[in-house]
Amino acid sequence: MTDLTVNNQTLSSSVQTQEQRQQKVRRLLLAPSLITILIIGVLPLSVVLVYSFLEPGAFGGVKWNFSTNAYVQLFFEADIFDGSLSFTTAYLEIFWRSISLAVMATLGCVLVGFPTAYFIATQPPERRNIFLFLITIPFWTNLLIRTYAMLLILRDEGVINIGLQNIGIIDQAIPLLYTEFAVSLGLIYSFLPFMVLPIYSSMEKFDFRLLEAGFDLYANRLKVLWRIIIPIAKPGIAAGCILVFIPSLGAYITPEVLGGGKSMMIGNLIYSQFGAARNWPFGAAIALILMAVVLISLMVYMRRTGDKGGLSHG
């Protein structure tokens, strides 16, 4: 009897050690990726967080004194003479412009990307892959080069203006470049594939016979679109919107090349703080606030859609 219990104990303990060993192996295998995330994700963010609460150095860098000036600066301007603070909208305008341009770019991507994705989903399977391949072609070229190509198209002596002048529709070049229009067009062009691909993946298994059921039940084309196609494609549209909105909000190259001075976005503001303006803490503070804006809007979105759509399906 006692022999048996002893036996049992050794057995269970040996099982335990085996489990422990497995866990150890698992941790070891995970370690490289965990360390990588720590180095490229957590560490830089911590640096940004710390820097945002320091004072700017005279020639860039930081002075190691605690200060909340960077955050105050976003809303208030210090008077040059007496140092008194007065409310300023200068930076808020840049925030507002960034958000509205990102929203425009997102809407533009939906308007162009949804029909594109729908079209691809209606194609026979072997042809779909060709179209998806075509969608990814722009990624083969550097974003900066592509943006300069847009510049060449939009400028006064560009394809559009010269073309319209030659046809005789316009006498003088329309100023397209260095406008908010140019920036949103550039953003749409840059991020369109991020909209097309998730919408396509939500439409891929769409049962097109449902359209006939809709028509049969007295819905016209528009109602079939609103009541059947879009609700079913919604998780894809939501995922696409998130994937376009976030990088658009923080875009740097596009507003830099196509926007000129008038269409500065947050990305450019951050860059200038670490460059010419030499105010690293302020740059860091703006970057963190941008992150907070994105996080809060995502959280609001997820709470509103519950567990029905959005990221969980995208």
Partner: peptide
């Protein structure tokens, strides 16, 4: 179809 007072029960239900 949406202007015909005729409804269909589809083979795959749809």
């Amino acid at each position: 179809p949406h202007k015909r007072s005729v409804n269909t029960v589809f083979q795959q239900y749809s």
